[in-house]
Design a binder for these strands. Sequence first.
DNA 1: GCTTGTGAATCTCTTCACAGCG
DNA 2: CGCTGTGAAGAGATTCACAAGC
Lengths: 209, 209
Amino acid sequence: MNKISGRTIERLSFYRRLLIKLAAGGEDRVYSHRLAEEVGVTAAQVRRDLMEIGFSGSTKKGYDIEKLVGFIGKVLDNPSGEPVALVGLGNLGRALLPFFAAHHPKLKIVAAFDSDPAKTGRVIHGCRSYPSRELQPVIEREKIRVAILTVPAAAAQEVSEELAAAGVKGILNFAPAMLRLPAAVSVESIDMAIALEKIAYLARRGRAE
Amino acid sequence: MNKISGRTIERLSFYRRLLIKLAAGGEDRVYSHRLAEEVGVTAAQVRRDLMEIGFSGSTKKGYDIEKLVGFIGKVLDNPSGEPVALVGLGNLGRALLPFFAAHHPKLKIVAAFDSDPAKTGRVIHGCRSYPSRELQPVIEREKIRVAILTVPAAAAQEVSEELAAAGVKGILNFAPAMLRLPAAVSVESIDMAIALEKIAYLARRGRAE
DNA sequence: GCTTGTGAATCTCTTCACAGCG
DNA sequence: CGCTGTGAAGAGATTCACAAGC
């Protein structure tokens, strides 16, 4: 169950989301075809992914939804929950707080940071905000290993280094900048400006496929 | 210069961003190595990408920055500019307005929509907001072909169909939902919840590579 | 020497297609 | 039968490595 590819991780996450929805609708078993159809991949892909994590559906009638949700959880989640830091309380950061607060049972934003004193020392959407100066101590105290970075591009490298130094091992980076960090720190970048340029390109040229 | 892969488009966008920064710093030529290093890919990858769009640097001393920026622009941009619609003025949508308004010379959000009358009929960050009912006429009038979708997941499918019907050809989808649309419409989804789960996973397991 | 441009090799990811099972 | 699990084939993307230019 060791090295699972990034693509597979993403799809597992999608599968789980859908499975939970199906379970809420009262279903308890599902075929790879169905899962594939709803998530937008092929059935073979679904079976491969489940094979990769070592999950077996009974051949009889597809996969047991509840079991599969649990199994995916064992792969993706930290059983004891995962505290997350949000760094940068600009427009985007403030918008993400309620967005992430809403959903996840395991992932929880427990601390927010900003360099602007006007934005700190408060509680925003149930999350305490601290001045940047307290970044390292708070992250260490709360044992935070995952951070969301929503600072301006110019500050991103510096702040990410502080995060890494404080012990953060994964950064979800929204700043339009490339972060250079030790290999022990994983970075996943969401570059919305690039995504918009891409979709504008695709809209002009005909659709691929 | 025809079918360019999605990956390449994204990287071209990155290259351009960097090139503009270099040009602002007074530089006028650049080697593939340098570009690669700063963007986080290999030099061979850079050269492949430029080959793919048919750009030739002089062998003498790398690539002419200004020419390359222009060339990438010819590939990516609609020369007459690209009007964009934003649909969904919740927290995220409102945060994206200034974010996108800031930067791009060609891509410009010219209309925003929301189903909540309290949020419409105003001008937010220089962008006029309309009630959803006016979605189709406004999009047709403004000849909008690109839309950013920031509505709740439950509404995403329906709204995206309206967009498609109104003539939109590319959708940047932030809703955690899979859109089923005619193949003529391109969809690029940014699923922040999935991305956060992924980075949490990577933070727990050691880094890949 | 240092580049770029590029065929060929490699790696990674996805799909095919079928054995095996209930 | 129609399903899952999976070896093998296929597609795509990346890197290697080297010819050719200045």
